[in-house]
């Protein structure tokens, strides 16, 4: 990753931190409590934005990069790494969606968990992409792993529309979309709407920042993976060319020292031979 990209990442990180802090300040101190839900409604400045990042941004990026990887003209490990990074960040955000939703549901509905379609399918989505991460951990050739993971991500992504439309398919007690309802009319007002909007911006920025950082980690990890064998091999050689026992023999006689050194050289030669032949 170029130095320019790194500074862009840093700026996005700073913007994410600032906008998140602003959201927290507006959400906790400036906005009034909601009419019906009181202070509980403040959680809604974060919960929908987190869900938005998890369900649409992260898994959207993952699906798109999987398609681009599988399509032979755009096949590049860049898409594989980007997709994997997006899934990993997406899994974190999906878990956060469930946790924040659960925290809100306990006082509102009186239970931590209800078996509604939306909750259940979000939990399923989490398990599904945990499966993806498990598949990714299986050691394999990078190309093979990339193709396998791209297919897995696409198949899992088919589940996302089921999550989105499940609210309309199954009649449940989860409220219907407030912002993204069919008419696209905002049902939140004034300062609260602005705070929620800022929440969306903040979480999206956090997502982009995490994605960029994660992508960089992926690149570095691959580079270490490639270089590791070479490094270990050269370290091993360096070890081998040293005398096996140091010159501590001293007064015990030059003959003994010479013998030990000869042994060391012989060992060194045997150590080198098979690997040298294999190259």
């Amino acid at each position: 990753m170029s130095a320019r990209m790194r500074s862009v990442t840093r700026w996005i990180g700073a913007a994410a931190a600032v906008s998140t802090a602003l959201t927290v300040w507006l959400g906790l101190w400036v906005t009034p409590p909601a009419e019906v839900q009181g202070t509980l409604a403040r959680l809604l400045y974060l919960h929908p934005p987190i869900a938005w990042v998890a369900l649409y941004c992260a898994f959207g990026v993952a699906a798109l990069s999987s398609v681009l990887y599988l399509w032979h003209r755009t096949r590049s490990l860049f898409w594989d790494r980007l997709g994997a990074s997006a899934v990993e960040v997406g899994v974190v955000f999906t878990a956060l969606t469930l946790v924040t939703g659960s925290l809100w549901g306990r006082p509102t509905w009186g239970v931590w968990w209800t078996w509604t379609a939306r909750l259940t399918s979000t939990a399923l989505l989490l398990v599904l992409f945990l499966g993806y991460l498990a598949l990714r951990r299986v050691p394999a050739d990078p190309e093979v792993r990339a193709r396998r993971c791209a297919v897995a991500a696409l198949v899992a992504f088919v589940d996302v529309p089921i999550v989105t439309f499940s609210v309309d398919w199954w009649q449940t007690l989860h409220q219907r979309g407030t912002v993204l309802n069919p008419g696209l009319t905002l049902k939140v007002h004034g300062l609260m709407a602005w705070t929620m909007g800022l929440g969306f911006l903040a979480m999206t920025l956090v997502f982009v920042w995490m994605l960029l950082v994660r992508y960089r980690v992926e690149v570095l990890a691959d580079r270490i993976g490639d270089g590791e064998l070479e490094v270990s091999l050269s370290e091993r050689w360096a070890e081998g060319s040293m005398p096996v026992i140091g010159d501590g023999a001293g007064a015990a006689g030059a003959g003994a020292t010479a013998g030990v050194t000869a042994l060391g050289t012989a060992l060194d030669a045997t150590l080198r031979q098979p690997a040298g032949g294999g190259r």
Binding site: L124, V127, L128, L130, A134, V138, V155, A156
Partner: peptide, 12 residues
């Protein structure tokens, strides 16, 4: 790995 991958997919 297979049960972890398949079972959530076929939950619907």
């Amino acid at each position: 790995l297979l049960p972890l991958l398949v079972l959530p997919i076929v939950a619907p």
